[in-house]
Design a protein around this nucleic acid. Structure first.
Lengths: 232, 232
DNA sequence: GCAAAAGTGTTGAGATTACACCCATGC
DNA sequence: GCATGGGTGTAATCTCAACACTTTTGC
């Protein structure tokens, strides 16, 4: 902590010393073309010039961490309403060669279509990369990517947050595809449908999606807020 | 992040601005007298004078976060070898009224008996409190306590980290008691034993614990390193 | 008519729960 | 001898995994 009695001694020592800086980074996931993708920005300056990294920036005094994360994401993607949670805090001393910077990483999910908003106005290059083919990233962001991917897989298994990767209406097939892509695992269609419907998270709409083949029943989530459920 | 190209503009703005400070706090759990307890220190100075809080302190430049956490714990308890993992980062602006301080909270487990080392040499009061009867804590530490407790419960269910709350040799009854105390739930003794033995995490020692009643078989963990296992 | 995705039930295996009695010891 | 915790087995239920054929549509 900070103004802690028992720490008076060390605090006095450190008071004049420089402190580590605080940054937030955001790992943004979406499903596009049947692939799990993540948003990267290209770095224009400094030791990592030309390398890709997750969007992020320094936290300002007086700014809450999640607000900083949300701001970052909005600036980069224009996406405002998304699922956002804290992922992990990376504090390795030399992760940023320029200065000791502690990075609080966030993890976010955006529904398909939000990509359209990815025109980086005043920003440099910005692009969605398949998670399975990430380039070498700046800082410790490859490790961050792995942590985020694992969290995503875990959360998909025991919460209902898939809803934030889907449009308001979707078919059971589309839902299943998302699970298969993220968990990298195939599911039996009959078992999958029975399980999902038994959970009561979905409500059937009286509509059909028409396409190249047999029309499929459309569903929506009964609740679009995070909750813990043993899904798979 | 920090020296990020696309952030050049804002970085320049913030460069001269003060940054939030970084602290680590540690929530330390143990089982004592059949109760789950956590370690608190009493604050001697500042706005929270006289209140209890989790041990913690500012991170120094050049110091990795987990090293800072370990240092804190060692200074306070003398415990060196314990299970330690990052819990969550608390970044609410006014959590420390003195200055915007981001706290990276850690969560640690110590085996019984380590309490003996809790003589706070140069430190003020230090004490183990039952988790169910925590006083009003300084900062946002009551919220931190809840987060830590939830994490402990979750981790106990899907990992083998109980080993770090137990001495090298223990009975199945002692193991079961820990689960019951932490998860606040009763288990059927026969089912519990069958499940635990089936997991293969334990090895029977050819020894007995003698006490007030019928001697109980002693067990040890086959592995004393963290791994994921669906325990209960 | 054919390719492609949607829809639908049943069965067996394994896991989980509930439950009751005898045993070894210290006092 | 009695109070206390240790030790053991079985049956009923539930959950999960495996599995194949028919339907509807666009082309």
């Amino acid at each position: 902590m900070t103004s802690r009695a028992s720490l008076a001694t060390r605090r006095r020592e450190t008071k004049r010393q420089p402190h580590p800086r605080v940054a937030v980074d955001a790992v943004l996931f979406t499903i596009e073309a049947g692939t799990l993708k993540t948003l990267l920005v290209k770095i224009k300056q400094g030791p990592f010039l030309g390398q890709w990294a997750f969007p992020g920036g320094l936290v300002q005094v007086g700014e809450p961490l999640d607000t900083a994360a949300r701001r970052e994401l909005y600036e980069k993607t224009g996406v405002q309403d998304l699922y956002l949670e804290q992922l992990y805090t990376f504090g390795e001393v030399h992760r940023d060669p320029a200065a000791h910077t502690v990075a609080v990483a966030y993890f976010a999910l955006v529904p398909p279509g939000a990509h359209a908003l990815t025109r980086g106005d005043k920003y440099a290059e910005i692009a969605w990369f398949p998670v399975s083919e990430l380039p070498e990233l700046a800082y410790d962001h490859n490790a961050m990517a792995i942590t985020a991917h694992q969290r995503l897989q875990a959360k998909l298994s025991y919460t209902n947050i898939v809803y934030s990767l889907l449009p308001p209406e979707f078919t059971l097939g589309e839902l299943q595809t998302i699970y298969e892509v993220i968990l990298d695992k195939q599911f039996d269609r009959r078992n999958f449908r029975r399980k999902m419907l038994a959970l009561g998270l979905l409500k059937p709409l009286r509509k059909m999606r028409r396409g190249a083949h047999r029309p499929a029943a459309l569903f929506a989530f009964t609740r679009r807020s995070p909750m813990n459920v043993e899904v798979l």
